[in-house]
Design a protein around this nucleic acid. Structure first.
Lengths: 188, 188, 188, 188
DNA sequence: GATGAATGAGTGTTCATTCAT
DNA sequence: CATGAATGAACACTCATTCAT
């Protein structure tokens, strides 16, 4: 009969603290205090600190996949699909900056090696399918999928990054311009 | 009369260890052991751990700027200049993968906030100048410079990242294809 | 459910060690070892080293106040009251030399600045009242209370100090003589 | 050919630093920096840190003895001699508060055990002689000399102590009153 | 005589984790 | 299920001291 609220509080406390004081300084005890529970309680829900951080990451990635696939319609033209995804990504970032930041911090930590990629990739499969189909139908350039994502998705992440693009105003026009660039990069 | 060799050994040990065990786990004592010196000695050359990590980062960024600006010729067409920079980046990454990885880990750590951006930006000024001139001469899209770099340089970083693009073979042809994508993104 | 015994052991170990090797050399780890606990455990009971030393001091000062106010009877003549206090002080010192020494070492350390004087003074209020009343009733000299205590209490401390008065035998007769001197000093 | 100036600078730096940051925090390197010399240089003039601190203490005690014996005239009445000494003590404290504070900090540190008492006592011999003579001539109470000093000299130290008597104004009148108390204590 | 560089041993403190309750 | 107490190991950093120059 695990308390749902506690697990939820733990998730939120982890994200909040990591965003506040960073990955390195976020100790188990501090996270516990932030969540209003005992450090020992964390070990009921998670095997160890690693597991806590990883599971927090995975949860966010799943939520993220759901958000960016909102209004996904495989029958639309590739460009429209990617445009929707692109805009969803920026919308998600604006609404859940803390989740976004957590993911970025996590991705560049050694912990990220410990995540089973497949566990996450499956949630993004529809997007991969779009890319594959786009290539087949001679709409997208015939290059490895890493190269397509490097130009369609990572620029969005970079542009959303407060640290890297502190001075950049992300208004609708800029987002639109940026997507045009992405599309120019990948379209055949 | 500080021992040049010790400072050099310290630099190398720091990079090596951060690449081996990650930023978080790289403690001062471990770095000292890796460099074959006493932990106390580090504090002769650096004010504190932060200073050690930052100065290591800055050193690499300077070396990196020199490497990617190799054969820089401002009189060439914009496309050729960017192409050279693009290829230099991949060459540098191939030769100094550890330096590259260090920079990526550092950039996403809270330490990166502590670096004075101007100290580094000045070394990359020639590139900025190329972008500015390209926009003026109606060769590049007239968008904020962050958006240009997001499509010209960050994809190179992503593609070079072993973690993100483990399965991608970075042969000359792929590099060429990727640059074409980057160019398509930014060219008017 | 904190272990009362551990806190008590910590108190005793702190006093013992400070008396053995001095204030400066008494490190947290040494105190922990002396108390038979882990250094980390100290931080469950005390915020930091400072807090440990201060709280040890305050505890002793309270015990001391209780000891020297034993048989306190405000209705007695001033001289008798002070005489009782004087004798209690020597008795306490004889029984708890280590506590006495700890207080003296602490008083001359920079830590002593961090103690809220009022926290301690309240326990000694009855004595202050005696002095005030003595002045009012023209029994004691009308001088600032610091001057009265400098002659009534500090000489007792000096005479009790093994370091300063190594060769002095503190028998009843000497204590009596000394009190006579103190009384001659303060009486009108 | 030891540099007199360096030794003097070292003495002053030691006193200054101990008064500024306390006995415990005054490390050899900090003292060296304060004196404008290398830590290693200290070991030319002093065997070790202990020796530095002790020798600083002894120097001050000698200066102090000279100061409080100023205008000493053994032919004067005992009361006048002690009064002069008493006033000299307060004068010295006012002029050299830092030296005074150093002595107090040192006296209650374990280092003080390492000082050979005779090395210092000889400078205070004239005072002892006055006390002995005062007893013989039935002017002072016939009690151990520690008891006399406990009432004639230590109250002066207590009253001079900023920490203990922060609120006490040490004007001529108060000093005079206090000496009267001291004299009442010791006179037969 | 003087020093900057060097260091092993130590400092106070926090860590992730366990366990009896 | 939940926890406060407990801890050995590690943390970043400073120490008194030495020594080649």
């Amino acid at each position: 009969m695990r308390d749902k609220k506690k697990k939820e509080a733990l998730f939120e406390a982890t994200v909040r603290l990591v965003n506040e004081i960073g990955f390195v300084s976020s100790s188990v005890s501090k996270i516990a205090k932030e969540a209003g529970i005992s450090p020992a309680t964390i070990y009921i829900y998670h095997e160890n600190k690693e597991d806590l951080l990883i599971s927090t990451y995975v949860q966010i990635k799943i939520k993220l996949s759901q958000a960016i696939l909102k209004n996904f319609d495989g029958t639309q033209p590739v460009r429209d699909i990617l445009s929707t995804i692109w805009k969803n990504t920026f919308a998600f970032n604006r609404q859940h900056r803390d989740w976004f930041q957590y993911v970025e911090q996590f991705s560049n930590s050694p912990f990220s090696d410990l995540v089973n990629p497949e566990e996450i990739e499956k949630y993004y499969e529809p997007i991969m399918e779009v890319l594959r189909s786009g290539i087949e139908r001679k709409i997208l350039k015939d290059v490895p999928h890493e190269m397509l994502t490097a130009f369609v998705f990572y620029p969005a992440i970079v542009l959303s990054n407060q640290r890297l693009c502190a001075g950049l105003k992300l208004d609708d026009q800029n987002i639109e311009s940026a997507f045009t660039m992405a599309w120019d990069a990948v379209k055949l």
